[in-house]
Design a protein around this nucleic acid. Structure first.
Length: 205
DNA sequence: AGTTGGATGGTCT
DNA sequence: GACCATCCAACTG
């Protein structure tokens, strides 16, 4: 959840990808400790936020004790509260783009005004935009109850059987066996899960 | 319904 | 200088 001047935004994480260790050639930790990936080598429960493709800030949750670089990329979130604030944040994100034509902004804003809530944070770049996450959140303690960006216990028990797995996206450069590792996890049938290409029919591949 | 290409700037041999 | 843990519009069939 995120609470700030834009209001209170709450969502349920419905899709994740795991990146584990320096031997995982898909991970940012594959080069060892660098300036960018430093928090991946730190304690768990901390936000690792990076910029991809010059445009999108993506949120990760560090998962292993200090010294073992590992993180979960938050790929999709189901909006629960503060949907209007999420729409506003998505529009704001568009507006921040430097070379975006005014008519493109107007069209984008109009589209978002009527867009289904389920899709507002469907995709790692969109999670960042909808929750106003950027690199200034890097290193934040997501387990601190006072943090403006934080994880909270799920209200109910998640049915383990509803979790499906698949291969990670956008990591072709890593090669095998990393491209085939079923380290992507999602809630089956949830409307906020990215599609395509997940899960493309089966629950493994 | 599937494919292609442009946006955009930080990070790393 | 090449390559991205992406997204969307604009094509093709």
């Amino acid at each position: 959840m995120r609470s700030d001047a834009a209001g209170r935004r709450v969502g349920r994480i419905v899709e994740l990808e795991a990146y584990i260790g320096t031997s995982d050639l898909a991970s940012h930790a594959r080069f060892g400790l660098t300036e960018r990936n430093r928090v991946m080598f730190g304690p768990p429960g901390i936000a690792y936020v990076y910029l991809v493709y010059g445009m999108y800030d993506c949120l990760n949750i560090v998962t292993e004790p200090a010294g073992r670089p590992a993180a979960l990329l938050v790929r999709a979130v189901e909006p629960l509260e503060g949907v209007d604030a999420m729409r506003a944040a998505r529009i704001d994100w568009l507006a921040q783009r430097r070379r975006l034509a005014p008519d493109a902004l107007a069209r984008g804003a109009a589209g978002l005004a009527t867009a289904a809530a389920a899709g507002l944070a469907r995709g790692p770049g969109l999670v960042g935009a909808a929750f106003s996450i950027d690199r200034s959140d890097n290193g934040r303690d997501l387990c601190d109850p006072d943090s403006p960006l934080r994880l909270e216990p799920a209200p109910g028990d998640e049915d383990r059987a509803s979790v499906v797995t698949g291969r990670r996206v956008g990591i072709g450069y890593a090669g095998e066996p990393w491209t085939s590792r079923p380290w992507r996890f999602a809630i089956a049938g949830n409307a906020s899960v990215t599609v395509p290409p997940f899960p493309r029919g089966a629950d493994q591949d």
